[in-house]
Design a protein around this nucleic acid. Structure first.
Lengths: 189, 189
DNA sequence: GTCTATACTTTGATAGAC
DNA sequence: GTCTATCAAAGTATAGAC
């Protein structure tokens, strides 16, 4: 008989994927168990606080990932290169539109209220780091703020559309369009 | 003792609001009862099929509302006026960003699969009727298709951002920005 | 048509064997 | 650390009084 030993670093992403597929309320312990192969006993061993603790840790890990791979590069590295990196990372992270943004999904219903600070922080950080990169590249404060907000919102909307229409090309087109607008903004006449 | 008598035409919007607030999985019969004041007995009297039947009727009513107030005007009326009407109706419908789009929320998790046809139809109709209006106003087929898709996606993304940041001005800015881009597209040089 | 009471299922959470 | 067994609470759905 084989016996799988899990490590928390491995199971957080597995559970995160179930939350993405089913949402916070739809992700019951039974469904998490059946989709990950991790028994209820093990789940409560790692997360004594149950679903709420799981979701909190998932949100923390998502935030960390974006800080390291997107937000900090936008704030510290050369703007053009950092924006290019953002698009690469975003396309990979959201599987070219086949994977949703859990933070955005949480924002839509009252799940938001459970994790209000984390949800707001994620989007605030993304918009602000992108805005800062645009400003450093020479964009005006106003156009940078507007474009950053529209870009982050546009990504979220494209994820909804791509899933609703079952057509990931919608996501690709949105990324291409927003990338072009950013490029133009960074290369003023 | 007062006894409230409900009509289906009245209760569908009430239940729809609970689904918007809590999502499909989060909207349990008990919570629907407590938030609407309609007992479980009455709910099952009107919807023998339970939650699934409720959601199906809600989606049908949403679709009807958008067809009548947004999609058909875009297809039949003078393009500029119809687009202006669309922005008025959208702002009112989504309460200036304080109310989410239930169809978009359903699209994000596996609730989509229960109502796949309705979810896809809603966004396909919106994008296509807006695209048609842009074409009739003189826009090129390519730019009309791209702008229509970006506009509908942008609205969805703005609803997520506005809720996440608890700032409805995000929605107002997105509407203003997309409205301006459409106006420019409809008045080619 | 409304409601309460009830049956049955699923969920969240715990205890204890291994 | 894993798992199964178990329980109280909450879920869906039904029946029947009014």
């Amino acid at each position: 008989m084989t016996r799988t030993v899990f490590e928390k670093a491995d199971i957080v992403p597995m559970i995160a994927e179930v939350f993405r597929e089913l949402g916070y309320e739809g992700a019951t312990m039974s469904r998490i168990t059946s989709r990950t192969g991790i028994s209820k006993g093990s789940l409560y061993y790692f997360f004594p606080g149950g679903k709420e603790e799981m979701a909190a840790e998932i949100l923390a890990e998502i935030e960390e990932w974006f800080v390291r791979n997107v937000f900090e590069p936008l704030e510290r590295e050369e703007p053009q290169a950092a924006v290019q990196k953002m698009w690469r990372e975003v396309d990979a992270y959201f599987r070219s539109g086949q994977r949703i943004c859990l933070v955005g999904a949480f924002a839509l219903d009252e799940t938001r209220d459970r994790f209000a600070a984390k949800v707001a922080e994620y989007f605030r950080s993304w918009i602000d780091s992108l805005r800062a990169a645009l400003v450093r590249s020479g964009a005006s404060a106003e156009s940078a703020a507007a474009l950053a907000e529209e870009t982050v919102g546009g990504i979220q909307g494209a994820l909804i559309l791509a899933r609703a229409l079952r057509d990931e090309r919608v996501f690709a087109r949105a990324v291409a369009s927003h990338a072009e607008r950013i490029t133009k903004c960074m290369q003023p006449l």
